[in-house]
Amino acid sequence: MNNPVPVPELDEIDEALIRATQSGLPITSTPYGDIGLGIGLSPDEVEQRLQRMLDIGVIRRIGIIPNHYQFGYRANGMSVWDIDDDRIDEMGETIGALDFVSHCYRRPRHLPEWPFNLFAMVHGTSRDIVEAHVAEIRKILGDTVHDHRILYSRRILKKTGLRWRKSKERKCCE
């Protein structure tokens, strides 16, 4: 799993701030101040802590998260690829740089049923467009690829922002 040890670079106040912002900033004239009110932080402290987390790379970006569906991106294909292990980093970098790929990850195979070790998420306004993009990826990968598949999403059953809370809080359920 990604991270076997607790992250030391964040203190409890950072953690509280992360939890307070996970559903998004309110559209008010002073959104950071309003978030701070709920957790006992001054507006300045909220801004400084967020800026610090940006600087050290814990926060990758703060910004608008669009709803892709509403913009017409109805087709979401998770393309999965069985790539030679010794070429995967090179191929992953190339595929990840394509502008129609939103995420590109190496993940473990689960042999024999699941030989795929590279995942590239492809978004499009239709399946035809997703398939054209996947064909382009196939061409780039050439003889490093042994098998591939597209897993279209049929339904989004749950989608929320980061959900993260203290280890000892209750496990289930909402």
């Binding site: 799993m1 991270n3 992360i18 509403q70 993260w164």
Partner: peptide, 30 residues
């Protein structure tokens, strides 16, 4: 602010928020 509120109402804006680096905040897995 009105432009953002309208984007939100019409469903174009999921949220304004922070995107955390995978593996840097807690743990997660697909």
């Amino acid at each position: 602010m009105a432009a953002f509120a309208d984007l939100k109402n019409k469903g174009y804006l999921a949220r304004i928020g922070a995107t955390y680096a995978t593996g840097r905040v807690g743990a997660s897995t697909l």
